[in-house]
Design a protein around this nucleic acid. Structure first.
Lengths: 117, 117
DNA sequence: CCCTATTATATAGGAGTGCCACATATCGCA
DNA sequence: TGCGATATGTGGCACTCCTATATAATAGGG
């Protein structure tokens, strides 16, 4: 069984991407930080990964901006978890960011896609 | 004629993208800094733009790493221009970065594309 | 019963990249 | 003479993510 090396993703490309990822993940259901971290890793098939030290401060920033809303949930005999859901304003921001991301990828492809002409 | 607002591209998304853009642009022909700056703007149809203060330091970094090689060209009665061409090592890095970029975009799409399932 | 892994959140300090402001210098046009 | 476009260069700042470290509860192995 041949070993195919996964293309390495430049850490700098991730700058700013966490915001869009988190907003996308809390869109469908309320989720807590650790869950978001694991979902990013799983759904990207290991290609993308954010450390806890990056995620939690970002969650506070997004909440401070009013894009997500956190709620502490404590169940007996369990560590407390903070579930975040997307706010109405967050939904608008998410739509805008999705458009912006698509535009960015298009622009990058126009230039890097090939030395056409 | 209706005015269509261009989707705004988050400044943070650009972090690290300049490297791949420059390597792509000097792939086909030797180019100088100002030309690269204009090409990025034109080929992306105005969506992407890098300031001189970002480009020149980056060109020095890329040259220092041996990925591009600069050459001063002075023509009588003209401001001197430094043309950069891609080195053999730079070509390898470019191929790697293109793969990495594609992987990154795929990963982002898997997560942000839709709250599937 | 201790040790470790996993789940779960939190913070201080540092690295890297692009931006703003500013500076220099030539050419063409009015 | 003034202005815009061409062309390169630098200091300091802002922002995001990472490393390292800390706390804390639960489950499982030895």
């Amino acid at each position: 069984m041949p070993h195919i090396a996964a293309p390495s993703i430049d850490p700098e490309w991730k700058k700013g991407s966490a915001e869009l990822l988190i907003l996308s993940l809390v869109e469908g259901a309320p989720r807590h930080g650790y869950e978001i971290s694991k979902l990013i890793e799983q759904r990207s098939q290991g290609a993308l990964r954010f450390h806890a030290a990056s995620l939690y401060p970002l969650l506070y920033r997004l909440e401070k901006r009013g894009w997500i809303k956190g709620l502490w949930v404590e169940k007996a005999g369990e560590r407390r978890r903070r579930f975040y859901r997307l706010t109405a304003e967050g939904a608008k921001v998410l739509a805008t960011q999705r458009d912006g991301w698509a535009a960015f990828v298009r622009a990058m492809n126009l230039i890097t896609g090939a030395e056409h002409a």
